[in-house]
Amino acid sequence: MMNVTSLTLDGLQQLSEHRLLLFLLFLLLYVFIVCSDGLVLLVICSQRSLHRPMFVLVAALLFNSLVGSTAVYPRLLWELRWGGGSVQVSVSACVCQAWVVYTLGASAFMLLAAMALDRYVSICRPLRYAALVSPRAVAALLLFCWLLPAALIGVAALLAARLPLCRARLSRLYCDIYSFTWLSCGGRAALLSEAYALLANTAIILLPIAFVLFSYGSILRVCLRRSRTFSTKALSTCLPHLLVFINYSASVLVELLQRRLQADSPAAASVLASLLVVLFPTVFNPLVYGLKLSAVSGQLRRLLGCQRRL
């Protein structure tokens, strides 16, 4: 058993031949994420007509995405431009980064489930919408979507931090909790950590996914029994959320499959999977909500038009 106090993230070694190109690409992507998320958030916060539950939840998801990007991109850019071939990070710092990234990822699924609830009540129970989706209820829902993952992932992070490690090298660009189990020496502590992680993932990822599928299935059944005009309008408000949900689910599925095959998969595949989870949702979300939600896109065009006239 090794007394491991720091870990080596050697994912950048897989990208060493294209460091400058990747630095410029990720810099442009990060600037795009900050500007696009910030612009949509500004529009939602500044326009009173958008101070409705659906848009509040959209703003929360974009804020989630912005914070998650900031937890990964700046350090990645620094290492690509000025760092060496690998990154040395203390175990405690690695655990903290993993907690932030996983908490925000799980919160995204919780927020998508909250959006599905909002659309379900709006379309399937419209007479009770004002009572069920009140400002106080939305505030409580937001706290629940952030605090529950933070608490559950926090316990998983603490269990991972206590694992005795027998390896200290990861083919990753950022830290994740599952890798602590992979690096550990095994034993009862590792089994306990894996069992708890499975329960936590069920509570904050699988159950929200199941609820989203149930909600949109119920909405589809209602739309099939109503007029074509009603169905078109109802489904158009659900489409952006569905696109984002599919994007998150596909990214996480690729990451989960790669993690389970981590010992047998090439290092480049692990790096690609870690890039996919961070890259696709953060870039895709503002595009969807800025272009597909007509109320937001209209206010965006008006705001940008005013800026051009000035």
Rank of each mutant, 00 (worst) to 15 (best):
L142I: 06
T232E: 15
F284Y: 08
I44M: 03
Q14I: 00
L224M: 12
L291N: 10
Y73E: 08
L132F: 05
F144G: 00
F211K: 12
C124N: 00
L206N: 12
V222R: 13
Q258V: 01
V72F: 15
T103H: 06
A98G: 13
D10S: 13
Q258F: 06
A268P: 00
A93F: 04
L28G: 15
Q88D: 10
T282M: 13
F23K: 00
D118I: 02
V101G: 01
F63S: 14
P281R: 01
A151I: 12
C35I: 09
F109D: 09
R169L: 04
G68A: 15
Q258H: 13
R48F: 12
L224Q: 15
C94E: 02
T229V: 15
V252S: 12
F284Q: 03
V254R: 14
G85T: 02
P286A: 08
R167V: 01
S215Q: 04
K233N: 14
V212Y: 07
Y196V: 04
Q47K: 14
L165D: 01
A114P: 10
L261K: 06
F109A: 09
V34F: 10
A150R: 03
R259D: 14
L142C: 02
L20Y: 00
C35A: 12
A98S: 13
Y129T: 05
S65Y: 06
L213T: 07
V252Q: 12
V4I: 08
A140I: 04
A203E: 04
L220E: 06
L148Q: 02
